[in-house]
Computed example of a mutant assay.
Amino acid sequence: MSWLTRLLGSGRRRLLASAATVLLLAAGGTVALGISSQHHAPQPPASAGIPATGLLNPTTASGGGGNTPSPTGSTASVPAGPTAPTPAAPNASAVTPTSISIPAIGVRHALLSLGQNKDGTLEVPPMSDVSAPGWYRNSPAPGQVGPAVILGHIDGTTGAKGVFYALGALRPGDTVSVTRSDNTVAVFRIDGVNTYPKDAFPTLTVYGNTTNPQLRLITCGGRFDHATQHYLDNTVAYATLNGTHPA
């Protein structure tokens, strides 16, 4: 059973925000300061986006015939996952990511380990340190088969740029290196970067099962809505494992 199958759970469970949406809402109501500089974060051009087909190789995310989530209301939502973190696969916790490096946008930082909050929603990096990205530990570890998920803020409450402020500036061919606890480095190649409206977030494209090791980098994006105090979009960078080497 995949991590996403467990995350999706039963269609009878109440809907909760997806990783990207929770990341957005975590900063909601608090990012009004310094907005004149914040809403100019780089946005990916159409030429940098992933093709509609051919790169991601998604399989049925529900594990075959289960309930498939769809965007609900103004946010993309998925049913509640398990309250306690569950390993993505047997022995998945034996190797964990410890840091991330993205030379093209100047990112080099240790990774937090993110789980779920008491109410079942996805934990996100703290607003007290927007320079810190985090790996969602119920997703595959980077280098395992499936989409590993790493979250980062676009900005902070004072206008400080977050770790993924320039995520939209990534281009196909850029590299992302993730150092792991077994002293190896998984190197990913960026396939594309897309920005999606909150009400059209492609849950299965982002979180759905894949046949090879992949990576998803997620932050807020698009225009900042002063009325709602939220960014209107989410930016997602897609990457595929290119190889591993000793740290």
Rank of each mutant, 00 (worst) to 15 (best):
R180T: 15
D233W: 04
G168L: 00
V163I: 15
L23D: 09
P90I: 03
H39T: 01
C220T: 14
P246A: 14
A27V: 00
L215M: 13
S128Q: 12
A48H: 15
P71C: 11
R13Q: 15
A17D: 14
A84H: 07
T158H: 10
T195H: 07
V176D: 11
R189M: 06
L23E: 13
A148T: 02
R180G: 12
P202V: 01
A26Y: 02
V130P: 09
E123M: 14
G65K: 11
R137E: 08
A48P: 00
T121L: 03
G66V: 10
T5R: 13
A61T: 13
R216D: 11
G143R: 10
T157A: 13
P97T: 05
A247S: 14
R108K: 12
T98G: 12
L151V: 02
T195E: 15
V145G: 07
L23G: 09
A239M: 00
D225V: 02
P140M: 09
V78N: 03
P82V: 07
L112T: 03
G115R: 08
R13Y: 11
L204H: 00
P202T: 02
S37E: 11
A20F: 00
P87H: 00
A84G: 03
L241R: 02
P42E: 04
G221D: 08
H39Y: 13
P202D: 01
